[in-house]
């Protein structure tokens, strides 16, 4: 970006009345009062949660909802995670703890011996999902996450795989299961032929 790309916006001059601040206050009061008595809108906006659920009304799009995590399984029923630590590296809340080990399967190098997510620390930003090269970790639309102790909300590998079993139908995996470490990502067409038609 060059300097002349920057548009400098000057704060607009205030009129005398605006400087006095009182008209604005009255204006604000008018707005809040209007909302106070707008019953129609209130009914339209608010859901009475335990009785009404947004997924029932179709308002919650399950495909991209950021709820409880799950660990996907590959077609053979093994954990799809390769313990690359990308999710825990990307995690801004540092809520993913992984311990890697040599996998017991011949076609895989590494697998997570331990995979814990502290759902209380998590901010549900979905960075882990973005970072995962094998689409192993995903956020499900499950949002009803309660427990009596904090420890229960540190989900370990078994629980996360269990979440996958429960939510298999809810959120189809975006890509078919792959073992090529995410090579099938959608690359930009422009970078496809690096050696051709370069500017001299």
């Amino acid at each position: 970006m060059r300097d002349d790309d920057i548009i400098v916006l000057k704060e607009p001059e205030l009129t005398a009345a605006e400087r006095l601040y009182l008209p604005q206050i009255l204006d604000g009061l008018k707005t809040t009062l209007r909302h106070m008595f707008d019953l129609q809108r209130r009914r339209a906006v608010v859901h009475q949660y335990p009785e009404q659920k947004r997924e029932d009304t179709g308002e919650l799009r399950t495909a991209n909802y950021h709820g409880v995590h799950r660990l996907n399984k590959d077609p053979d029923g093994r954990v799809a995670c390769v313990a690359c630590f990308m999710c825990s590296t990307a995690c801004p809340a540092h809520c993913i703890h992984i311990e890697a080990g040599e996998s017991p399967w011949p076609d895989r190098e590494k697998y997570p011996v331990k995979f814990d997510i502290d759902e209380l620390r998590c901010i549900y930003c979905g960075m882990c999902e973005e970072a995962c090269p094998v689409d192993a970790i995903e956020l499900t639309p499950l949002y009803e996450l309660v427990s009596c102790t904090r420890e229960e909300l540190i989900l370990d590998k078994e629980k996360l795989l269990q979440v996958y079993e429960e939510t298999k139908a809810v959120k189809p995996r975006k890509n078919p299961p792959v073992t090529d470490y995410g090579l099938t990502g959608r690359q930009s067409l422009d970078v496809a032929q690096p050696n051709v038609e370069r500017k001299v």
Partner: peptide, 12 residues
Amino acid sequence: AAAYELPVLHGR
């Protein structure tokens, strides 16, 4: 299968 997805295959 992986390389199949690469754009070079799509007739470009």
